[in-house]
Amino acid sequence: MWPDRRIIDLFKTEFPIVLAPMAGVMDAELVIAVAQGGGLGSLPSAMLSAEKAREQVNIIRQRVRAPINMNFFCHKPVDADPAREAKWREQLAPYYREHGLDPSAPVNAANRAPFDAAFCEVVEELKPEVVSFHFGLPEPKLLQRVKATGAAVMSSATTVKEAIWLEENGVDVIIAQGADAGGHRGMFLTENIAEQPGTFSLLPQVVDAVKVPVIAAGGIADGRGIAAAFALGASGVQIGSAYLRCPESKVSPAARVALAQASDESTVITNVMTGRPARGVANRVMREVGPISPHAPAFPHAATALGPLKAAAEKQGKVEFTNLWAGQAVRMGREMPATDLTRALAGAALVRMGALSQS
């Protein structure tokens, strides 16, 4: 009944629905629930240690017999710039004083590491059925080792140029990430945020430009969005924000309230939280310092100085310094078990596509 079965056949899932990997707000529990609902569960691994990744995959394997997608970052590491970070700390100093914190106290470094040989060994050991990358692809030798495990490889493109590059460099699937998508922009051949197209402008152009299956990501949160993506040539969809308020997510109570109250105007693209453009529900520091700040240290170092502020505010039940990554369709999220939501999304899409085919 799906007009394009390439993703279903490649991933061996019941539905062509991929759970977006959302680092910091989910773990194995959400992966398991989506897999039980017939979708592809994705484990965000860029902020995990090798040991934690093994633990999480083992939990998933013990609970469900289904394919797993392990997701990694491929950014080029940038050394911390002490002078720039000092200016950043100075800009954040009033917030430190407001919360009774010392702006000069040492803080923990950001823990977003790019895919490397050590993590490649983890992939070779665990053999996930799918491996996805953000910010491009790893170096060719590492990519060859990943593909040698038998894993299907996919990565995000935010422009047609990036999609063509990904196909030329060996991906099996391209995720067309529109500007309305939540989380970090997958940009790797451009830094121009102003030129980023929305999902339903980007998608058909990517489909026309490449031969591999394309997954649509951004602004899709119900059956209508899924049907629209397939009408524009998608072979599958990647959905994240719709799952944020499911009981299996690790979103805090205060963040759940903020997400539930969000509207179509609530999210912005900002570099304040990590140093790299990402879409999320606007919080106090995004509004007052950004949303785009030329003073934010390069990714991921901007997050370092925000860590103590985030912790202090969250103790008071506030999310003034918490990165609430979410897309423009965040308002359409639902408070229901992720297994049920996955099946509801697929069912509604099939009904919609059936109605369209008969009209």
Rank of each mutant, 00 (worst) to 15 (best):
D4F: 08
K12Q: 15
E14L: 03
F15S: 07
P16L: 01
I17C: 10
I17Y: 12
V18Q: 14
L19F: 04
E29L: 03
A46Y: 08
A46K: 03
A50L: 05
K52G: 03
N58E: 15
I59N: 13
V64G: 06
I68K: 11
I68T: 09
N71L: 06
F72D: 06
H75A: 04
A83L: 06
A83Q: 15
K87H: 05
L92V: 00
P94T: 08
H99I: 00
G100T: 07
V107F: 04
A109N: 03
F115K: 07
D116Y: 05
A118M: 05
V123H: 08
E125A: 10
L126I: 04
K127M: 06
V131N: 01
G136H: 09
E139G: 07
E139H: 10
P140W: 05
V146H: 02
V153H: 12
S155M: 02
A157C: 12
K161Y: 10
K161P: 00
K161M: 12
E162H: 12
I164C: 14
E167V: 08
E168Y: 03
G178T: 09
G186T: 09
N192E: 15
A194N: 13
T199G: 03
T199Y: 04
F200V: 11
P204Q: 08
A209R: 09
A209F: 03
V212F: 01
I215D: 10
A216F: 03
A217Y: 09
R224A: 14
I226N: 12
A228P: 01
A229H: 12
A229Y: 11
F230R: 11
G233W: 15
A234H: 13
S235T: 02
V237R: 11
Q238R: 09
Q238H: 04
C246T: 14
P247T: 09
S249W: 04
S249R: 04
V251T: 14
S252G: 04
S252T: 15
A258H: 01
A258Q: 08
A258Y: 00
A260K: 13
S266R: 08
V268R: 15
V268M: 13
T270M: 12
N271Y: 06
G275R: 12
P277D: 12
A278C: 03
M286L: 08
M286S: 03
R287W: 00
G290K: 11
P291L: 02
I292G: 02
P294Q: 09
P294I: 02
P297Q: 04
P297E: 06
F299K: 05
H301S: 01
T304K: 13
A305G: 00
A305I: 01
K310D: 13
E320T: 12
E320M: 00
F321D: 08
F321K: 04
V330I: 12
R334S: 07
R334Y: 02
M336W: 00
P337D: 08
A338T: 01
A338Y: 08
A338C: 02
T339W: 02
D340N: 05
A344Y: 08
L345Y: 06
A348H: 07
A349G: 06
V351Y: 11
R352D: 14
R352M: 13
G354A: 11
A355R: 14
S357L: 14
S357N: 06
